[in-house]
């Protein structure tokens, strides 16, 4: 029998372990979710092509590392160099892709004030183009890469072993999250973003350049997706032309879960989703983790239709 049976011992015997694992998985979701949330908060549209922005980031990391001649578990200095180079390259390429997506797929439609459905279909089309282009160019098989960071236990709390990869993933996500929060809430550019999210027309009348703000949020989303791509490569050590599809779906779910358009909500939703998935996979089998993710989403939306923290890029200060 392969039906659903629930194994509580497996979960509660190592609850801490699974929580840590879930948090590190969820950090990647959270970073990608920020891209969805930023665009949705300002433009009220699901940027379906964001998943491919992430996918391109992972391939950039692979390319950068192979150019730099990365090998399995190099010396510590080389590790830092490889991580930094991967981060800069992936963030730059992903950011540029995201901005290009906005120019090609959305700008014309925005001028026509087209209904959201049209945006969605263009985004789906562009998403197909990007992932297929990489499928043709890079082959359709899973692409491996050198294990730059050898997984090792950093410290142990009770029976919970925390590895270096998990610490790096969660820390990096938190730092970037904090940076974005400061950027949106404290800087001049961030004020422009919030103004356009609140009321585009009034913001435009007050002298905010709407096109520039929109390009900026796509750029920010792309940068974060590039960072997420690096963390994904460190954690999983492989990528594929269609890697974005499922991850994008999860990240969007995370954004909705936390309250789409809400930056802190994306973080909360991402981490929560990661933990839920790991719990569900332990309780039953990894085949059911996607079902658990969607069931949680539906239940949360039923009781809190605006997500856990509510939708509020425009009022992010409050």
């Amino acid at each position: 029998m392969k039906g659903i049976f629930v194994d509580f011992d497996a979960l509660f015997g190592h609850l801490g372990q699974h929580t840590v694992d879930g948090l590190s998985k969820g950090s990647i979701y959270a970073l990608v979710a920020l891209g969805y949330t930023l665009v949705y908060g300002v433009l009220r549209l699901i940027n379906f092509a964001h998943s491919e922005v992430f996918m391109i980031g992972t391939f950039t990391v692979v390319g950068t590392w192979s150019v730099l001649g990365a090998t399995d578990s190099p010396a510590i200095g080389t590790v830092i160099l490889l991580l930094l180079a991967g981060l800069v390259a992936a963030a730059a390429v992903s950011g540029a892709t995201a901005v290009a997506v906005e120019r090609v797929a959305y700008r014309r439609l925005r001028r026509m004030n087209a209904p959201p459905l049209i945006f969605l279909i263009t985004a789906i089309g562009l998403s197909l183009v990007l992932s297929e282009a990489f499928g043709i160019w890079q082959g359709r098989l899973v692409k491996g890469m050198p294990t730059v960071i050898e997984r090792s236990v950093l410290f142990t709390i009770g029976n919970t072993e925390v590895t270096n990869v998990q610490v790096i993933t969660v820390l990096a996500a938190l730092i970037m999250m904090f940076g974005l929060d400061v950027f949106i809430n404290r800087t001049r550019y961030g004020r422009g973003v919030r103004a356009v999210a609140q009321d585009p027309d009034t913001a435009a009348l007050m002298g905010v350049n709407k096109d520039r703000v929109i390009a900026l949020i796509f750029l920010l989303g792309g940068l974060l997706a590039g960072a997420a791509a690096l963390l994904y490569c460190v954690r999983y050590g492989n990528t594929r032309f269609n890697v974005g599809f499922v991850l994008g779906l999860k990240a969007f779910t995370a954004a909705v879960l936390g309250g789409i358009g809400n930056l802190r909500g994306a973080l909360l939703g991402g981490l929560l989703l990661g933990v839920v998935e790991v719990y569900a996979a332990t309780l039953t089998s990894s085949a059911w983790e996607d079902v658990a993710a969607f069931v949680v989403l539906v239940v949360v939306l039923l009781f809190r239709p605006t997500g856990l923290l509510g939708e509020s890029l425009g009022r992010a200060r409050a």
């Binding site: 439609l109 263009t122 789906i124 089309g125 197909l128 183009v129 297929e132 282009a133 043709i136």
Partner: peptide, 14 residues
């Protein structure tokens, strides 16, 4: 074909 399909979708919608 999927590539062309995606591109056609974008063009039709734009």
């Amino acid at each position: 074909r999927t590539l062309v399909f995606g591109a056609a979708l974008v063009l039709v919608m734009l």
